[in-house]
Amino acid sequence: MAKDYIYEVARIRVKEGSLLTRAQLKQLIALPDIRSALAQLADWGWGNPDEPLEAERMLAAESAKTWELIDELLRDDDSLSLLKLTRDYQNIKAAIKQIYTNTKLPPERLYVSGGRIAAEEIRRAIREQDYEIFPEAMAAAAREAAELLAETGDGQLCDAVLDKAALTELIREGKEAKDPALQEYAALTAAQANVMIALRAAAGGKNREEILNMLAPDGELNIHTLAQAAMEGREAVADYLRFTQYSSLSDSLMESMVSFERSCEDLLLSRMREQKSEVFTIGPLVAYVVVRQNEIKSVRMLLTEKQNHLPESVMRERLREMYV
């Protein structure tokens, strides 16, 4: 008999009640400055009451709350570890850059919580070149990225190695995942990242072979066709998408990269909405984590826009779909 998640889903349903609605985001947009937006968020229970009102701290606290809840609910069950994968790579990236370029930024600005390996442990491993604490593929990528950065000082090369490794693992683990929501998340995240990497690389003057080398194989998109299309331009990639399962993203890519990114998030959200009627599977937990990540991202974007005094109309235009 397959394991069910009745208790966990019921708790998540209560938590979903405190997710931000589109109306609440509009309310934030209408506030005059970032201070008042942060105060409003604090009123809604965001951040830690003991900490000063600071955007990054508040967002990091919200992310940590999500993972603490999930870890508490699942305890030894590692069914959602796929969602933590990219966070480990993000922390490896931060640790390599911090150690090899002597960045002075405080750790909370560099590292994210909710990975499979504690950020502190990752930093120690990179500093001491103790790659054995990582799984095989992660260790190889971390070693290669660190050596590349030490030799060339090129942060982009370092990022490319780690991004490819992260996406390759994400695709593999997504295919092995039993839950459809996890499969969807992995496939769409990898496809979106591959498209963006290909287009950015092409815009940066990379040739077809170089682009191909940066893309993660075995995903839903054919990387050979994608690399070739990227060389020909954004429209060619949009044309290619039209013949894949992500045809609905084609028009937005024609429009702009920002629009494409938003459409990808909206598509993922619409797939996650299918979990609203699930009661027994882990799907609603997957959806909650994805939705919380998107929510935090939306608030981060909004706060940044507020800090840069962007007009209300622009912020409204960039507003994402929300889960509730």
Partner: peptide
């Protein structure tokens, strides 16, 4: 089990 999940929060 569902009730326990809800009562933990509410």
């Amino acid at each position: 089990r569902a009730a326990a999940g809800v009562l933990t929060e509410k």
